[in-house]
Protein backbone atom coordinates (compact mmCIF):
# COMPACT_ATOMS: atom_id res chain seq x y z
CA UNK A 1 0.00 0.00 0.00
CA UNK A 2 2.76 2.40 1.00
CA UNK A 3 4.74 1.59 -2.12
CA UNK A 4 1.67 2.33 -4.18
CA UNK A 5 1.18 5.81 -2.70
CA UNK A 6 4.86 6.50 -3.21
CA UNK A 7 4.54 5.45 -6.82
CA UNK A 8 1.58 7.77 -7.38
CA UNK A 9 3.53 10.58 -5.72
CA UNK A 10 6.43 9.86 -8.07
CA UNK A 11 4.05 9.99 -10.99
CA UNK A 12 2.70 13.31 -9.83
CA UNK A 13 6.22 14.70 -9.57
CA UNK A 14 7.19 13.43 -12.99
CA UNK A 15 4.02 14.82 -14.50
CA UNK A 16 4.62 18.15 -12.81
CA UNK A 17 8.23 18.19 -14.03
CA UNK A 18 7.13 17.54 -17.59
CA UNK A 19 4.47 20.25 -17.33
CA UNK A 20 6.94 22.74 -15.85
CA UNK A 21 9.45 21.96 -18.58
CA UNK A 22 6.79 22.49 -21.24
CA UNK A 23 5.84 25.74 -19.52
CA UNK A 24 9.45 26.92 -19.74
CA UNK A 25 9.52 26.07 -23.43
CA UNK A 26 6.23 27.80 -24.16
CA UNK A 27 6.67 30.88 -21.95
CA UNK A 28 8.11 33.90 -23.81
CA UNK A 29 11.76 34.30 -22.88
CA UNK A 30 12.82 37.72 -21.66
CA UNK A 31 14.83 39.55 -24.27
CA UNK A 32 18.50 38.98 -23.66
CA UNK A 33 19.85 41.23 -26.37
CA UNK A 34 22.75 43.41 -25.32
CA UNK A 35 21.69 46.65 -23.62
CA UNK A 36 21.47 49.54 -26.11
CA UNK A 37 21.57 47.41 -29.26
CA UNK A 38 19.41 49.28 -31.78
CA UNK A 39 17.17 47.41 -34.19
CA UNK A 40 16.33 49.51 -37.25
CA UNK A 41 13.47 48.36 -39.40
CA UNK A 42 12.08 51.52 -40.97
CA UNK A 43 12.42 50.14 -44.49
CA UNK A 44 14.40 46.86 -44.29
CA UNK A 45 11.51 44.39 -44.08
CA UNK A 46 9.64 46.15 -46.87
CA UNK A 47 12.76 45.92 -49.05
CA UNK A 48 13.14 42.20 -48.37
CA UNK A 49 16.16 42.61 -46.12
CA UNK A 50 16.64 41.58 -42.50
CA UNK A 51 16.40 44.52 -40.09
CA UNK A 52 19.67 46.16 -39.02
CA UNK A 53 21.08 45.50 -35.55
CA UNK A 54 23.45 48.24 -34.40
CA UNK A 55 25.67 47.26 -31.44
CA UNK A 56 26.17 50.43 -29.40
CA UNK A 57 28.70 48.73 -27.10
CA UNK A 58 31.04 47.79 -29.95
CA UNK A 59 31.11 51.34 -31.26
CA UNK A 60 31.48 53.06 -27.89
CA UNK A 61 34.64 51.07 -27.18
CA UNK A 62 36.14 52.65 -30.31
CA UNK A 63 34.45 56.06 -30.53
CA UNK A 64 33.06 58.58 -28.10
CA UNK A 65 29.36 59.42 -28.45
CA UNK A 66 30.35 62.80 -29.89
CA UNK A 67 31.70 61.35 -33.14
CA UNK A 68 28.36 59.96 -34.32
CA UNK A 69 25.89 62.04 -32.36
CA UNK A 70 27.50 65.45 -32.91
CA UNK A 71 29.79 65.17 -35.97
CA UNK A 72 27.77 62.71 -38.06
CA UNK A 73 24.36 63.99 -36.99
CA UNK A 74 22.79 60.82 -35.61
CA UNK A 75 19.73 61.85 -33.58
CA UNK A 76 19.21 60.26 -30.15
CA UNK A 77 16.22 58.28 -31.38
CA UNK A 78 15.99 54.70 -32.60
CA UNK A 79 14.67 54.87 -36.14
CA UNK A 80 14.65 58.66 -36.02
CA UNK A 81 17.40 59.13 -38.57
CA UNK A 82 15.58 57.56 -41.52
CA UNK A 83 18.78 55.94 -42.73
CA UNK A 84 18.68 54.44 -46.22
CA UNK A 85 21.36 52.70 -48.27
CA UNK A 86 21.31 55.66 -50.68
CA UNK A 87 22.42 57.96 -47.83
CA UNK A 88 25.04 55.45 -46.69
CA UNK A 89 26.72 55.16 -50.11
CA UNK A 90 26.74 58.97 -50.24
CA UNK A 91 28.90 58.90 -47.11
CA UNK A 92 26.17 59.94 -44.68
CA UNK A 93 25.43 58.22 -41.33
CA UNK A 94 27.00 54.72 -41.24
CA UNK A 95 28.64 55.45 -44.60
CA UNK A 96 30.94 58.02 -42.98
CA UNK A 97 33.04 55.12 -41.67
CA UNK A 98 31.67 51.99 -43.34
CA UNK A 99 33.27 52.86 -46.65
CA UNK A 100 36.25 50.53 -46.78
CA UNK A 101 38.45 53.32 -45.31
CA UNK A 102 37.73 53.58 -41.59
CA UNK A 103 35.79 50.33 -41.42
CA UNK A 104 34.57 47.51 -43.64
CA UNK A 105 32.49 48.43 -46.63
CA UNK A 106 28.76 48.05 -47.34
CA UNK A 107 28.94 44.94 -49.50
CA UNK A 108 28.99 42.96 -46.22
CA UNK A 109 25.20 43.24 -46.11
CA UNK A 110 24.61 40.54 -43.52
CA UNK A 111 26.88 42.02 -40.88
CA UNK A 112 24.38 44.85 -40.30
CA UNK A 113 21.24 43.28 -41.77
CA UNK A 114 21.35 40.47 -39.24
CA UNK A 115 18.14 40.90 -37.24
CA UNK A 116 15.21 38.50 -37.13
CA UNK A 117 12.76 39.55 -39.86
CA UNK A 118 9.74 41.36 -38.51
CA UNK A 119 11.53 42.76 -35.43
CA UNK A 120 10.26 46.30 -34.95
CA UNK A 121 12.53 49.32 -34.62
CA UNK A 122 13.55 49.64 -30.99
CA UNK A 123 16.46 49.99 -28.59
CA UNK A 124 16.95 46.81 -26.62
CA UNK A 125 16.81 46.70 -22.85
CA UNK A 126 15.49 50.26 -22.55
CA UNK A 127 13.78 51.28 -19.31
CA UNK A 128 10.41 51.69 -20.99
CA UNK A 129 10.59 48.17 -22.41
CA UNK A 130 11.51 46.65 -19.10
CA UNK A 131 8.64 48.23 -17.16
CA UNK A 132 6.32 45.62 -15.69
CA UNK A 133 3.26 47.62 -16.74
CA UNK A 134 3.42 50.25 -19.45
CA UNK A 135 3.78 53.78 -18.12
CA UNK A 136 2.02 55.16 -21.15
CA UNK A 137 -1.47 54.78 -22.57
CA UNK A 138 -1.92 51.51 -24.42
CA UNK A 139 -3.75 52.11 -27.68
CA UNK A 140 -5.28 48.63 -27.85
CA UNK A 141 -5.59 47.40 -24.29
CA UNK A 142 -7.57 44.27 -25.19
CA UNK A 143 -4.90 43.14 -27.62
CA UNK A 144 -2.11 43.71 -25.13
CA UNK A 145 -3.88 41.58 -22.56
CA UNK A 146 -4.35 38.86 -25.16
CA UNK A 147 -0.67 39.06 -26.02
CA UNK A 148 0.16 38.06 -22.49
CA UNK A 149 0.70 41.32 -20.63
CA UNK A 150 -0.09 40.85 -16.92
CA UNK A 151 -0.36 37.07 -16.97
Amino acid sequence: MKAKTERTAMWKFTLFGVLAWMGVLVAPEPAQAEYADVVMNNYADAAGMRPVVFPHWYHRIRFRCKVCHADLGFKFKAGGNKITMAKIIDGKFCGACHNGEVSWSVENCGLCHSGIPGTPTHISGSTVQRLVAPAYKILDKKKTVQDGYNK
Binding site: P30, A31, Q32, A33, E34, D37, S114, G115, I116, S124
Partner: peptide, 16 residues
Protein backbone atom coordinates in the same frame (compact mmCIF):
# COMPACT_ATOMS: atom_id res chain seq x y z
CA UNK B 1 15.40 38.87 -14.68
CA UNK B 2 17.72 38.60 -17.63
CA UNK B 3 19.72 35.44 -17.25
CA UNK B 4 22.61 36.34 -19.55
CA UNK B 5 22.86 40.09 -20.08
CA UNK B 6 25.87 39.83 -22.40
CA UNK B 7 24.73 36.99 -24.65
CA UNK B 8 26.55 36.33 -27.90
CA UNK B 9 24.75 37.67 -31.00
CA UNK B 10 23.53 34.22 -32.01
CA UNK B 11 21.90 33.69 -28.58
CA UNK B 12 20.54 37.17 -27.90
CA UNK B 13 17.09 36.79 -29.40
CA UNK B 14 17.29 39.64 -31.92
CA UNK B 15 19.94 38.32 -34.33
CA UNK B 16 18.84 35.88 -37.01
Amino acid sequence: KIEDPNAAPADDGIHD
